[in-house]
Amino acid sequence: MSAAGDERVSRRRRWRGLDNPYAFLLPAVLIFGMFALYPILRSLFLSFFQYEFLRPEDLHWVGWANYGEIFRDERVTGWPGIVTPEQPLSVWEVLCYPLLVVWLSINSPGGAFWNTIRFTVMYVPAAILLPLLLAVLVERAGRLSTLFRTLNFIPIVVSVAVVSIIWMWIYHPEYGVINTLLRGFVGEKADYTWLSDSKLAMPAIAAMAVWHGLGFNMLLYLVGLQRIPSELAEAARVDGASGWKAFRFVTLPLLKPTMFLVGLLATIGALKVFGQMFIMTQGGPGDSTLSIVLYLYNVAFRYGKFRFGYASALAWALAAFIFLVTLVAFRLTRERER
């Protein structure tokens, strides 16, 4: 190396202190540690305490009591609350559990937990299947596929808040589009009060959510479809498979990982649902659309007592539940692949 080069290097030695990986990490670690990691851990800490934000002097350890309260809280588990069994469950009862969940989510006893499950059960299957259909169609549209992809993607760049407001107007009983269209078919009988009917409110919100997420899930499928080598489908066609058969036996099995991803993301999103309910129904009518996050928000900030301890426990219980669902989902798919 030339002398000039050496000199330049030594001039830069002064910056050596800043010139190491720890310095590069510093800004991110500071901001992240203070405004993400600390709040998350603080919530975990608070969930074991009796703590109301307006009365900070009354902070005392209660152990698992906040978590215990969740199971006894009628507004979470629905009236009269889940009956906890006396002795360990039999194999049959454990096997029937998925059926029980489906049954309970249809004949929901109410309560934030069951409402959230009900929303998830309505939302997730549609969020897996409709975008798949759309993606397959878009893929075949040739030159126009970009256009269709773009158009269907538009809703997801708009916020839940704005979309909810638009759909409140669509669902409006008098001036709303849906009722006006329905009046064309069934006459004046079509005066459905979509969002203030305890039976219709949740499906109405779920339908909107499916519409909102359509483009995003379609995109995930399109990415998945692109990964499939086109020779495979062609080979199937040469072997005499019809378009449907090629899709069913070649494309679909190869899309399974994508379907899993879409389903998992949809489930996680559905379990955390908040904005739609907050804006469109405030959890009503009655408590029929009260979701877990909406309830914990209300416990913390709306019901007046600012019960941060209990609200933190609700948040962490939800996180644990989501984690459990994710874990089970991964386990199940891995076993099937074996």
Binding site: F32, M34, F35, A36, L37, Y38, P39, I40, L41, R42, S43, L44, L46, F53, I268, K272, F274, V293, L296, Y297, A300, F301, F308, A311, S312, A315, W316, L318, A319, I322, F323, T326
Partner: peptide
Amino acid sequence: TIMVPGEVGLIGQYEL
């Protein structure tokens, strides 16, 4: 923390 839903940090964040 990518796996932890952000809602979990809500209360700690408000206090902070």
